[in-house]
Computed example of a mutant assay.
Amino acid sequence: MVLVSLFAALIAVLGLIPKIDLPLGVPITMQTLGVMLAGCILGPKRALQAVTLFLLAVALGLPLLSGGRGGMGVFFSPASGYLMGWPIGAFVTGLMMSAMSTATPRSSAISAFFASAIGGLLVVHVFGVVGLVNIANLTWAQAVTGTLVFVPGDLIKCALCAIVVHTVARGLPDWRFGD
């Protein structure tokens, strides 16, 4: 329970880093890094719980999203698909991490990069595109094109996640990633 709460708080803290607003209606934030870290470090079940706890706090009105946003209205904004993708993305990241090698710090970092790219990037963006089509009334082509602007930054977040996982693996060699 402590780790779940800690990672929900980490996602909230990452929201303190100022967002970059885009014309698409979906800001660039660092909070996706928290989703990736939760999946890689906590595993699928606890990562899902952590991100769900965070989103529940946001739904209750706490201004925890980047830019001080919160409340039910954010779930009806163009960013809603991405937000709904966070728990699933964290879960998939954890599943991928549990299926890959974590025998050494280096292999843990490589696994974390690929797990976060699949769960924290691909899965979240699929949900985001669906949200843009349904909420922002974009065409599929417009939504896919629009979400591509996030990919370079998200790949940097995947690399940061891998660095953190490498550090955790070196400092806590008995840590079981993806469990």
Results as ranks from 00 to 15, higher is better:
Gly67Glu: 10
Lys45Trp: 14
Leu48Asn: 08
Gly71His: 01
Gln31Val: 03
Thr32Ala: 02
Gly15Ser: 04
Trp86Gly: 00
Gly71Pro: 12
Met72Pro: 09
Val26Gln: 09
Ala57Trp: 15
Gly68Phe: 04
Val26Glu: 14
Thr29Phe: 00
Leu83Lys: 01
Ser66Met: 02
Val35Pro: 01
Lys19Phe: 03
Val35His: 06
Leu48Gln: 04
Met84Asp: 07
Gly73Arg: 15
Gly15Asp: 00
Trp86Met: 02
Ala57Cys: 14
Arg69Phe: 09
Leu37Asn: 04
Phe75Gln: 11
Ala79Gly: 12
Gly67Asp: 01
Met36Arg: 03
Ala79Asp: 04
Leu64Met: 06
Ile28Cys: 07
Trp86Tyr: 15
Leu37Gln: 04
Val51Ser: 02
Leu83Trp: 05
Phe75Glu: 14
Leu16Ser: 15
Ala38Leu: 05
Met30Val: 12
Ala50His: 09
Ile88Trp: 11
Gly68Met: 08
Gly39Asp: 02
Ser77Leu: 06
Leu60Asp: 03
Met72Lys: 12
Tyr82Ala: 03
Pro18Met: 05
Gly39Ser: 12
Leu56His: 13
Met72Ala: 15
Pro27Gly: 02
Pro27Phe: 03
Leu48Lys: 07
Gly89Thr: 11
Val26Asp: 06
Ser77Phe: 05
Gly71Leu: 10
Val26Tyr: 04
Met36Val: 04
Val74Thr: 09
Ala47Pro: 01
Ala38Gly: 08
Ser80Thr: 15
Leu48Ile: 04
Gly43Arg: 01
Leu16Asn: 10
Ile20Phe: 15
Pro27Leu: 09
Leu65Phe: 00
Ala79Lys: 07
Ala90Ile: 04
Leu22Ala: 06
Met84Phe: 15
Ser80Tyr: 07
Gly85Ala: 10
Pro78Arg: 06
Cys40Thr: 09
Gly61Gln: 09
Ile88Gly: 06
Ala90Val: 08
Leu33Gln: 02
Leu24Ser: 13
Pro23Ser: 06
Thr32Lys: 02
Cys40Pro: 05
Lys45Gly: 14
Trp86Ser: 01
Leu83Val: 11
Met84Trp: 14
